[in-house]
Structure formats: structure tokens, C-alpha cells
Simulated assay, not measured.
Amino acid sequence: MRASQPETLIAGILKRCPLVGLGEIHWCPEVMAAITTLLENPALEGTFDDIVVEFGSERHQAWLDRYISGENVGETGLEAVRQDTLYFLLWSPPVYADFFRRIRAINLQRLPARRVRIVLAEPRIDWETLDSETFALWHEQREKAYAERVEREVLDKGRRAILVFGLRHLTHCALPGARYAPLAERLVKRYPGVIELIHPYHEEKGVFSSDQRLEDVLHNGLMIPAASELSDGPAMIDHIWYLGVLERRIALPDALFADTTRLDTVVTRLQRLGEQHLMRARKMMTASQRAIFEACLARHIALDHDDPAM
């Protein structure tokens, strides 16, 4: 089984096709940190033009372009980039904001022609009018919107890009029971051979890589081909990245609950979406976080009852 250094493999892929999909595991910050470190590698400079990410709203593309290119625009916009998204709590861990900061720092060290652009793939939504019904509609449409964004911002311009999305978006065919074709499948149907997919190995996500648990490469940081004589059905991905034992833990950062303005926004949005979303959010909280959240929610409910317009 041929094993490759990640930067060597990716540089080789980008010589034969314009897109590489790097699968990210939500609530496993080690993976996002490893992706960021990989994209900083000097060996990849000049091999791609863009990084397309799931964790940012298209609404803020113009601001991010200025920030990533090195303009002195401050950092307040980083919060809006990640939070004006459907699954805004998912991007609360600091590793996502750190990603933007680190790519900006790399760009500041490069000539303008070698700087990388980050493309925000999340569709432009309006939280002032969003409710549970429109949330569900946006959820259904997002794979199509992601594919269109990649086409418009990368492929139509003859550029090359790294796509950083959750694993389920980056498979060559939909998983059993899935209602929508994933981003990568949509791209390949229109542009055969346009992308190769890399997933980090993770025990919990074995649906993608359980046939490749090779002890001799499990912790060495290398990438190997995903195809195996043990695989059944079509190949879901092309390469597996062995980053070692990865721990996945759903936990919102305490900083979210210490920032009263931000917490008010979270509570307002979840109230608008309804009880099902409130329950999901509670499951992400520690007991102390939940106590702060419930107190804030109670204040919002009291204010709603006192408002004569309600």
C-alpha cells in the first residue's frame, strides 16, 4: 500500500484535477488544526488559488476578501462570518476563527500573486426572517448551493481549490438513506474527474474508512489510497489521512456564555426556530452552561410577555 506525505499527495492531485476535498470532522478540533497546518505548508504554495469552506456565510465574502488579503479591517467581522450561518453553534469552537487568522498571516508573507482566497460557501440567509420552515428549506438546498458556489467562484474562473467541508459533503455518492446528493457527487456528475477526496481516519466515522485500519500507518500522519479489496460497492472517497487517535466531543466553548450580547443572539435565534432546536442546543451544553442559557431564555420569554406588540 503506497503511503504519501500529505503535501506531496495534494500537490500531485492538483496537477491532474482542479479540486481537492479535505474532510473535516465537526467537534474534533484536532482535524481542523491539522488541515490548517497542512495548508500553511510552504510546499503547497502556488499549487492552489482558493480554499472553499463550509463554515462561513457568503453574505460576508467582501469583508473576508479584504481581511484575508491583509487589509487593516480589524477582526470583529470574523464573528459574523461564522455566525450568520444555518448551523452557527457548530462553528463556535475557536479553531475556526484561528483558521482565518492563520491563512491571513500566511498571505501577509506572500507576494500578492501568491495569496490565497477563502471562499465562503454557506448561502446568504436572513436571520431576521428565518423560522423553522425556512430553516428546513435552506437545509435542503445547501448542497446544491455549495456546488453552484464552487462552480461560480472556482471552476468557471479556471482556478484550483481546496474544499474544507464535513465528511458527509465530500463523498462520491450519497450515503444510504441520504435524501440529497452531496456536494462532491454533484460536482463529479457535471465535471467527471474534477475532484479527489481525502478523509481523516476516525473510528466513529468508520462508514467511510473502516476497511483501512492499518496499524502500521495509523499514527504516522500519512495518506494512503482508500480503495481496498475489502471494500463493498462504489468508492466513497479516494484517500485516507492517518492523524492518530482522534477524540470527538460535543461541547460549546465557555466564552459563548460569558458574552451576554452573543448569548442573547443565540437565544433569539433558537427561540425563532422552535423547541426542537432549543433541545438540540441544550445537548451541546455543560450543566453550568445550561444554567446560564436557561436564565437568559427566561428573560427573553418574560420580555416577550411584557411586550404589548406580542
Results as ranks from 00 to 15, higher is better:
residue 75 E to K: 05
residue 258 A to I: 02
residue 219 H to I: 05
residue 260 T to A: 13
residue 115 R to F: 12
residue 110 R to D: 05
residue 249 R to N: 10
residue 40 E to H: 04
residue 146 Y to L: 12
residue 127 W to D: 00
residue 116 V to W: 03
residue 76 T to D: 11
residue 212 Q to N: 14
residue 116 V to E: 06
residue 34 A to S: 15
residue 237 I to F: 02
residue 125 I to F: 11
residue 240 I to C: 09
residue 148 E to D: 14
residue 295 A to W: 04
residue 47 T to Q: 05
residue 102 R to T: 05
residue 26 H to A: 07
residue 258 A to H: 11
residue 179 R to Q: 12
residue 199 H to D: 09
residue 162 I to F: 02
residue 64 L to K: 00
residue 142 R to F: 09
residue 288 S to F: 07
residue 225 P to D: 13
residue 41 N to A: 11
residue 56 G to S: 08
residue 158 G to A: 09
residue 163 L to Y: 04
residue 310 M to E: 14
residue 62 A to M: 10
residue 157 K to E: 11
residue 92 S to R: 11
residue 170 L to V: 04
residue 247 E to K: 07
residue 95 V to T: 08
residue 26 H to R: 07
residue 260 T to R: 12
residue 279 M to F: 13
residue 201 Y to M: 08
residue 141 Q to R: 14
residue 18 P to H: 06
residue 232 D to Y: 15
residue 63 W to D: 04
residue 65 D to N: 14
residue 304 D to S: 11
residue 154 V to F: 02
residue 54 E to T: 03
residue 72 N to Y: 08
residue 55 F to T: 01
residue 81 V to L: 02
residue 63 W to A: 04
residue 18 P to D: 03
residue 218 L to H: 10
residue 193 G to I: 09
residue 161 A to N: 01
residue 235 A to D: 15
residue 90 L to Y: 14
residue 229 E to Q: 10
residue 20 V to P: 00
residue 176 P to C: 03
residue 124 R to E: 15
residue 190 R to A: 13
residue 203 E to R: 15
residue 143 E to Y: 07
residue 139 H to T: 14
residue 272 R to W: 09
residue 100 F to Y: 08
residue 80 A to G: 01
residue 271 Q to R: 14
residue 63 W to S: 05
residue 183 L to H: 09
